Amino acid sequence: MQWDPGGATESRSKLYIYLRFLRIEQVFFSLPMAYMGAFLAIREIPPIQVLILMFFSLFFLRTAGMTNDNLADREIDAMNPRTKSRPLVTGKITVREAKLLITISLIGFFITAYLINLYALIFAPIVALIVMSYPYMKRYTAFANYHLASIQGLAVFSGAVASLGLYAKSFTQLVTGIPWLFVISTVFWAVGFDLYNHIPDADFDKKMGLHSFAVLLGDRALMFAGLNQLISVLLALFGDIQFNLGIIAYIATILHGLIMGYAYYSATRGNFGRAFYYNIYSSIVLGIGIIIDIIV
């Protein structure tokens, strides 16, 4: 299996290499989920300055997290035929550059969190700790897949905090206003697409003593991925009901599920690259659909 979303084999510009290194397209599947959380929490359009700050906050945190992930795994990636073309492995990006990028990005994340609201700043260290600790979890437990998935759920959570934190009069009001069904739904969705990354590497990971549900479950891992995504769709439908959303949200949720179904089918055919990217498309459809439903 040669597919790798973080590989950069082409002789291209430094900017292109950085974009591949950061898997920049993944920012854009997290962004609709974060905005979905922001719109759901207050049932209206958040202030434009908050939406702009959310974009930069998410960009900075994903940059720090992805860079740290590559840095922590660079020796493992060098031994894996699927990931040996990653820029930190080939030297197209140096360790010094990576550490500098992490530092700058974390500073940018905390500054934008401060500018959003006090609650966002309070939660920022917890969110950053969860994101930055992920690469080390697979050395100890298969639940690393859920750790990664929780980071995607935090996009919805953080979006809600960014908008609701402007109006909440207490911490309790803030926490109870979080669209938890959509947060949890996102976690189950993300477990599925993360396994599309891990299943092709299951034999290698087992040899290296790394943990994932792909290693733990073997041939049943793909079915487990599909089960998680089925739970995700059901939770999203319950969320539509809880928030009394309209027909656009229901259509988006059903399309979200159908696209994930096609992704699962692609994975059963061995096309894990297509499965991975169609899961990205499914999240965009869900996030944008719910946002449009709330606007109209």
Results as ranks from 00 to 15, higher is better:
Phe276Lys: 02
Ile52Glu: 11
Ile45Thr: 14
Met66Phe: 07
Ile104Gly: 05
Leu40Glu: 08
Met36Pro: 10
Arg20Tyr: 10
Lys169Leu: 15
Leu71Met: 06
Tyr167Arg: 11
Asp77Phe: 03
Asp73Ile: 05
Val215Ile: 10
His256Met: 11
Leu121Ser: 12
Met208Ile: 03
Asn228Glu: 00
Leu227Tyr: 12
Ile241Phe: 15
Val27Asn: 13
Gly257Ser: 07
Phe60Thr: 11
Pro87Ile: 03
His256Lys: 03
Glu25Ile: 14
Val156Asp: 06
Thr63Ile: 09
Leu181His: 07
Ile151Trp: 00
Arg220Ile: 05
Met33Arg: 06
Gly65Trp: 03
Ala149Phe: 06
Val285Leu: 02
Ser282Leu: 04
Glu75Ser: 13
Asn117Tyr: 05
Met223Thr: 15
Ile248Arg: 04
Asp73Phe: 04
Val175Met: 13
Phe123Asp: 06
Ser11Pro: 15
Leu245Cys: 10
Asp194Trp: 00
Ala98Asn: 06
Tyr35Gln: 07
Tyr196Ile: 04
Ser11Ala: 15
Gly108Glu: 08
Gly261Ile: 03
Ile102Arg: 09
Thr83Cys: 08
Phe110Asp: 03
Leu195Tyr: 00
Ala275Arg: 01
Pro47Ser: 14
Thr141Leu: 06
Leu222Gly: 08
Asp203Gly: 10
Leu154Val: 13
Ile251Pro: 03
Phe109Met: 06
Leu210Asp: 01
Leu71Arg: 02
Asp73Trp: 02
Ile104Ala: 12
Leu164Val: 06
Ala64Gly: 08
Arg274Ser: 14
Val183Ile: 13
Asp201Met: 01
Tyr136Thr: 08
Ser170Pro: 07
Ile151Glu: 06
Ile104Val: 15
Ser30Val: 15
Thr103His: 12
Phe28Arg: 00
Val95Phe: 10
Ser232Cys: 06
Gly7Ser: 15
Gly91Met: 03
Leu106Gly: 10
Gly192Phe: 00
Ala113Phe: 06
Leu121Arg: 05
Arg86Trp: 09
Ser232Gly: 07
Leu286Asp: 01
Ile45His: 11
Ala149Ser: 10
Gly159Thr: 08
Ala78Leu: 11
Leu129Gly: 02
Ala64Asn: 08
Met54Thr: 08
Gly153Ile: 07
Tyr18Leu: 14
Phe21Gly: 03
Gly159Pro: 07
Trp3Ala: 11
Phe21Lys: 00
Asn80Arg: 01
Pro125His: 05
Met223Ser: 14
Asn197Phe: 08
Ile178Gln: 12
Ile151Gly: 14
Ala267Leu: 01
Ala142Asp: 07
Val161Ala: 07
Asp205Cys: 09
Trp3Tyr: 13
Ala98Arg: 01
Ile241Pro: 11
Lys84Gln: 14
Tyr114Glu: 13
Leu255Ser: 09
Lys92Trp: 10
Phe109Glu: 02
Tyr265Ser: 12
Gly226Tyr: 02
Val175Asp: 01
Phe110Asn: 04
Ile295Gln: 10
Pro81His: 03
Arg139His: 01
Leu210Glu: 00
Ser30Arg: 09
Ile199Val: 10
Ala120Glu: 12
Ala275Gln: 00
Ser212Met: 02
Arg86Glu: 04
Ala64Gln: 09
Ala252Tyr: 00
Ala120Ser: 15
Val233Pro: 09
Met54Ala: 08
Gly91Arg: 01
Ile151Leu: 12
Gly273Asp: 05
Ile45Met: 13
Phe171Glu: 09
Phe224Asn: 00
Ser13Cys: 13
Asp73Tyr: 03
Arg23Asp: 09
Ile45Tyr: 07
Leu234Lys: 05
Lys207Met: 13
